[in-house]
Structure formats: structure tokens, C-alpha cells
Design a binder for these strands. Structure first.
Lengths: 172, 172
DNA sequence: GCCTTGACTGTTATGATATAACATAAGATA
DNA sequence: TATCTTATGTTATATCATAACAGTCAAGGC
């Protein structure tokens, strides 16, 4: 493996270094507090785990890491923390993978679209204003009032198309 | 329950009568045969079950009905048939619901978007050319080559917004 | 301070969804 | 019919997710 952090540019550019993750954590902390909620140790650690992962993690992967850190070792521990993060815009659920990923752009509400690479399993959040607009229109044309949407694309990421596939499924 | 078939106009208009379902089955038969494949009894019956359902059905719901008809009663029986239908464009998988629904427009390949009503659980296939185009562009801008996508919207359907909610989760 | 209250965590138990692996049967082809 | 391929059925197990309840902790009122 010759993958320096620099060669893995496609997946999670925002997470690659230490600083951005710290920044996101701090941002999450204040954002959550502003809503009168608490970023408790489990929740904070869960977010850290997601931020450190390049790609999405299953709930049981997260659970394993939480348990190793001394938190509870039963599924509800992980699911509760993950659902909290998802409910408050700090993480996303990737349904196709039965997995979760940290939100790359917390702080502003947004419709998210995900690009899932079949070769390296990376999951990238793509800007999706236009997609959301188109979907909203299609729904409205059918008399449907849209509240939220899941948009997940499967294909091949830039790096893998360029012949520099990297294994990014787990922690870095 | 006073729901005549007519009042349930939002969900699956194409499936509501007997004739369209028969037409879709016939179309499926020839389409599959043209590809050198077979629409075997389990597969055919599975498609019928999906066509008769207003809304999406879970694999175990389908399995139960198949078993009642004398087919195998173990999960792989249902999953194999369902996966066959999905792989050949005769059904769709609704990931948010862990469920399956018959394709409303078989015969032409298309990107499908689904509108899932939170009130009555109906699942409607919406035209999604524009959504697909927007998503394709967003992906291309990130160097991602898109092969297929899951687009699922959650909200409230026309009937439920108009105050005529109907229970449409299962068979008619 | 300390007590109440509500939110959070941990645990047990179970439910729901999905697939691997292998044996048998049915269709197609020569 | 012999053979090959595809499909079906079964057993067993993997994987994902939640209900329900008991104990714990933090914040605000007294």
C-alpha cells in the first residue's frame, strides 16, 4: 500500500486531515448545544469514529469500536447514537449499504446525494440542489408533498476510473 | 372501509384493474423470453403478487403468499424470484422500506424515482428523467461515473393531502 | 444542598431482513 | 437418453434493527 493521505483525494477530502475533523466536532458541539441538546461522550465518540472512517460504517462496526472504548456493547448503544447524529444533521444513513457516514457539510441544512464507488467502497457527498429541485418538481407534478429524500448513486469514483483504486472501507 | 377501487386513484393507477396487470404480465413474459430467460411459475406468481399489492411488499410477505400457493416456504425462494424481477426491470426494490414493488412501466429502461407516502404507505413511481439528468451532472462534475441510482422521496401523497387517506399497504 | 424530573445509557431479549451452501428437479440440447 | 444448465427447495446461519425496562446522570427548583 503506497497510499499517502494525499493520493486518496476523492473520498472525504474534508475528513482527511486531523484539523477538519476537529473543526467538524467543534461545530457539531455548538450546533447541538444551540438546540438545547447534548453531544454526550458516546455521541461525540460515534461522530469521531464516522469522521475517521473513509467510507460508510455499519452500526455493528461502530458498536465494536465503541465497546473497545468502554462504552456499552449492545446494539442499541450504537443505534441510538447514530440515529441522534442523523436526526440532527451530523451524519447520514446510506440505505444501500445499511451504513452511516459523517456529514461532510454540517451546519447548513441541505439535501444530500451520495456517490457510492463500487470499486473502492468510498462514499462521497455530492451537491444536490439541482437534483432536489428536479425531484421536488416531479413530486409536485403528481400532487405529492415532499418532505425528504434518499438519493444514492452507484458507480465508479474518479480515482478508481483513473486506475488508482484505494481501499477505503474502514478506518484510515 | 368505503374505499372503492376508484377512490384509490393515487397509488398504482396502472395496476388498479385486472386488465393492466394481465397486460403487464404478458409483456413481462415476452420481454423475458426475448432475453433467453424464463418467467417460471414462481417468478410469474411473484410478479402477480406485486402487481396485486397497492404499495410495496416485504420479501417475507411475498414468501408467505408463495408458500400458500404451494411454492417453497423458505426465504431464498422469495428473494431469488424478487431479485430476478428486479434484475430484469420488472420490479423495483424500495430500500427505505426494505420492500419490493412491481415496475409500473416495464418495457423501457428508465431511471425510476419513488414517492413514498408517510400517511398511507403508498409507493408511486414518478417520471425521473430530469432528476436523473441532474444527478448525472452532479456526479460527472465530481469525476464520478454513474451506473445506477436509488431515488426515494418521503412525504404525503395527493389523496392524503386532500383528506382522503386510504390504507394501501397490502393486497387489495 | 438535595430533591425532583427528564434525558441518557446499559442490558436482555427478540424481531426482521438477507444470504451461503448444497441437494434435488426440471428444461434444453445433442 | 445422456448430458449439461438452470432453477427450485431446504437447512442453517449471518446481518441488521428495535422493544422494553432498569439504572444513572445532569439541570433546575426549592
Amino acid at each position: 500500500m503506497t497510499n499517502s493521505i494525499e493520493t486518496r483525494s476523492f473520498c472525504c477530502p474534508d475528513h482527511s486531515g486531523q484539523a477538519p475533523a476537529q473543526a467538524i466536532l467543534a461545530q457539531a458541539e455548538s450546533r447541538v448545544k444551540a438546540q438545547g441538546l447534548r453531544l454526550t461522550p458516546v455521541r461525540r465518540r460515534t461522530l469521531e469514529i464516522l469522521l475517521q472512517a473513509h467510507g460508510a460504517l455499519g452500526a455493528y462496526d461502530v458498536l465494536e469500536k465503541l465497546a473497545a472504548d468502554g462504552f456499552g456493547a449492545q446494539p442499541p448503544v450504537a443505534y441510538r447514537a447514530l440515529n441522534f447524529l442523523v436526526d440532527h444533521g451530523l451524519a447520514h444513513r446510506i440505505r444501500r449499504l445499511n451504513a452511516f457516514t459523517a456529514c461532510a457539510h454540517p451546519g447548513h441544512d441541505h439535501r444530500a446525494a451520495f456517490l457510492i464507488c463500487e470499486t473502492c467502497d468510498s462514499v462521497t457527498e455530492a451537491p444536490s440542489e439541482a437534483v432536489g429541485t428536479a425531484l421536488g418538481k416531479a413530486a409536485r407534478d403528481m400532487g405529492f408533498e415532499l418532505s425528504r429524500a434518499t438519493i444514492e448513486a452507484v458507480g465508479q469514483c474518479r480515482d478508481c476510473r483513473n486506475g488508482t483504486p484505494t481501499q477505503q472501507g474502514g478506518l484510515s
